Simulated scan of single mutants.
Amino acid sequence: MAALFGASIAGLTSVVTQRTQAKAQWIAHDRIRRQDLYKEFIEEASHCYVHALQHDEPDLAALVGLFAKISRMRVQSSTEVANEADQVGRRIVDAYQAPEKTFLQLREMLADGSIDVLGRFSDVCRAEFDSLRAQQF
């Protein structure tokens, strides 16, 4: 009876350990996938924003790529991250309607912080990663 009980406990422990390891691997893989997506979004949004500040005609191909990444975030990310990414996209589109910026104006925007359209997005992403890290342990 003791041997049967011991074997049952060992088997149950093995199943729980495997399930825990599988969950940890899935969370780690998901985190890497999100990091890659956010990195690509930040790079593409930066390029689109600079273009919008210097031109009044939008780069439609780049904007489509940007909004495709936002759609991927709606599937893979938290609601907060997806909503903030959408706000970034809207700010970029709105920037095309503003007059083109000179280098002096860009310097002023840099000095007063108004050039940073990705700051809040980065903060929300960091909070999401902190939450994922807490789930992993």
Rank of each mutant, 00 (worst) to 15 (best):
Y96A: 04
M73G: 11
H47S: 13
I92A: 03
M1F: 06
K69D: 11
K39F: 14
A7D: 05
S122E: 05
D130W: 08
A68C: 13
L118N: 13
A68T: 15
E57A: 13
H55R: 06
Q105I: 02
S46G: 15
E100R: 09
I115N: 09
D116T: 00
N83G: 10
A82E: 06
D56A: 05
K39R: 14
D116R: 01
E84H: 09
H51L: 01
L12N: 10
A62T: 14
V124C: 06
D30E: 15
A68M: 14
R120D: 15
Y49T: 05
D30M: 13
F121D: 06
V117R: 01
E80G: 11
R90C: 06
V117L: 09
A10I: 01
N83M: 07
M1C: 10
G89W: 01
A24K: 11
R33V: 14
Q105A: 08
E84Y: 04
L63F: 02
G119I: 02
A127K: 13
L63V: 07
R31F: 03
D94Q: 12
L12C: 01
H55A: 01
A111Q: 10
Q35K: 14
E44Q: 15
A127E: 12
G11F: 03
Q87L: 05
Q35P: 02
F67N: 15
L106D: 08
I70E: 15
K69Y: 09
D36W: 12
L60M: 12
Q76M: 14
E108P: 00
S46C: 07
R90F: 07
V75L: 09
P58I: 10
S14P: 04
K101R: 03
R74L: 03
G11W: 04
S78F: 03
E108N: 09
A95R: 02
E100V: 09
M1R: 13
Q87I: 07
F137R: 03
S71F: 03
A52Y: 06
R90K: 11
T17K: 07
G6P: 06
D123I: 03
M1G: 11
D123H: 07
I9G: 01
V50E: 07
H29V: 08
A45F: 00
T13E: 12
R91Y: 01
Q54F: 00
E128Y: 04
Y96R: 03
E84A: 05
R90S: 14
R33I: 13
S77H: 09
T13D: 09
A22L: 03
H51T: 10
D56G: 04
K23Y: 04
H51K: 09
P99H: 01
I92V: 10
A52R: 00
I115Q: 04
I70P: 11
H55P: 05
V117W: 01
L12Y: 13
A28M: 06
V88W: 00
F103T: 12
M1N: 07
D123N: 12
V16G: 00
E40F: 09
S71C: 13
V93W: 00
F137H: 09
E80P: 12
I27Q: 05
R72T: 15
A134Y: 00
A28S: 08
S8Q: 11
V50P: 00
G6S: 15
